[in-house]
Structures are given as C-alpha cells and as structure tokens.
C-alpha cells in the first residue's frame, strides 16, 4: 500500500500560496516606475556620451586639429594623432552600456548588438553635432562648469597648449610681405611663412585672410625656434 500523501495539483498549490498572502501581485505603477527609471538611466547615459563626444570636438577645435583634414591626407593624419583617445574610449564605453541597456526591450534585442552599437553611435553623433551648432555649446565648455568636473577638468590646462606640434591655432598680429605673425593659443609668437604651395582652402585670397585680428589655424612644422613654413592656412569664423 502506498502511504505517500497524494500531491495537490500545481494550480492548487500556487493558488494556496497566493491566498495565504505570501506573494502579492505588483501594481502597474511598479512596472511604470521601473520603465521610467530605465528610460531615465538610458537618457542620462546618452547625455553623458553626448557630453563627452562634444568635449572631444571642443578639444579638437581648441587645438585646431578639427580644421586640418581640409589639407588632405597629411591633415587627416594630424587629426588622427591629435584625437584624445581616452575620452573617445570612454564615450564608446557609454555607447556600449547604452546598447546593452536597450537590449531589455524588443527594439534593442531584435537586432545584432553591433547594429545597436552603430545605431547608438549614430544617435550620439547626431545629437552631438546639433549641440555643437548651438551657441550654448561654446558658452558651456568655456564656462567653469565642465572645469569643475573631475577628470574632464584635468584636461583643461592642456587644451590648446599640449596640442599637435604641427597645428597652430591663434590670432594674426601683423601681416608681413611673406606671411604673417601669429599669436598662438599657448601664447607663443610664431612667424608664419606663406608660399605659392601653401594651401588656403575655399579659394580665399591671402590678402583677405591675413589681416590682423583674424583667427586662423596654421598647418606646418616649426623650423628653428618660431618660424612655421605653412602647408596650409585655414581661416576660422570669429
């Protein structure tokens, strides 16, 4: 004879556990709040990624490296060398975290992770470029707010000073017969020699560009102590 007690059907066991009050159905608000928090986390990380990407553009603007690809392959190479890789890797870290967070939802997991990463990179880049176009961008990064942020603040003393040796951003002090004298962003006075081979993009005439007070980026190595034979000169908008 089987003395084992007959086991109750699973449905009854589950219902009994529920009726005993040991488990309670979570309210819709619980899930709404959870979704809101998840969306907030996604938005905050997105903003942090946009902030870092915008800061990278700010650094490249200040160093002048942003403007040199217009001078061809050598310009692209100079830009590549000037990229702040730590900041870029940090931004990519945020992008990957964002893509992984999005995988909680169908729109995130229905594509390969690589596509999600590309989509987030595209989104961050698009938002970043829109931000860069606004007047808020320059004002924000020139203010003391980002300088008080740990890690980001440590970058500020080097901006425009520790940039690439062959890129010089500054203001024209005096126009000379064979070029001009430049006061660069680190405070150095450089004599810039402009020859017939010097690339001045967008068909601008030297006479129109090389006027005292104009902001320019000069691309070329320093020879001697303070002379630059310019490969290219790019006029910046004031």
């Amino acid at each position: 004879m089987d003395n084992q007690p007959e086991q109750r059907p699973l449905g009854e066991q589950v219902l009994a556990t529920i009726k005993e009050g040991n488990v309670k159905m979570r309210s819709r608000w619980y899930f709404r709040l959870r979704d809101i928090l998840a969306v907030m986390a996604i938005v905050i990380i997105l903003l942090m990624a946009v902030f870092l990407a915008s800061f990278v553009i700010f650094v490249l603007h200040q160093d002048g490296a942003w403007f040199v690809p217009v001078f061809g392959l050598a310009g692209w190479y100079a830009l590549f060398n000037a990229l702040p890789w730590v900041l870029i890797l940090l931004s990519l870290g945020f992008v990957v975290v964002l893509a992984i967070l999005a995988r909680r939802y169908q729109f995130g997991y229905q594509w390969p992770l690589l596509y999600s990463v590309f989509a987030v990179i595209f989104l961050v880049t698009a938002v970043c470029f829109v931000f860069v176009q606004t007047s808020l961008y320059g004002l924000f990064f020139a203010s003391s707010v980002p300088q008080d942020i740990p890690f980001i603040g440590s970058y500020y003393p080097g901006i425009g000073v520790l940039g690439p040796e062959n890129i010089h951003r500054g203001e024209i002090v005096i126009a000379t017969a064979d070029g001009f004298v430049l006061l660069d962003s680190s405070g150095r006075v450089l004599t810039v020699l402009v020859g017939p081979d010097t690339n001045i993009p967008f068909g601008a005439s030297p006479q129109a560009v090389f006027r005292p007070g104009e902001l320019v980026v000069v691309f070329g190595d320093i020879s001697g102590t303070s002379t630059v034979k310019a490969i290219g000169v790019q006029q910046l908008q004031q």
Partner: peptide, 18 residues
C-alpha cells in the same frame, strides 16, 4: 523541478501586470 515550476507560476502571478 516541482519547486521550480511553482516558482515560475508565482513569478508570473507577481509580475502579470507587466
């Protein structure tokens, strides 16, 4: 297995509003 099955249905009940 029985405990796991019970756990699945209890979790389903707790989270059914999601």
């Amino acid at each position: 297995a029985d405990d796991l099955l019970q756990e699945i249905f209890i979790k389903a009940y707790v989270n059914i509003r999601s």
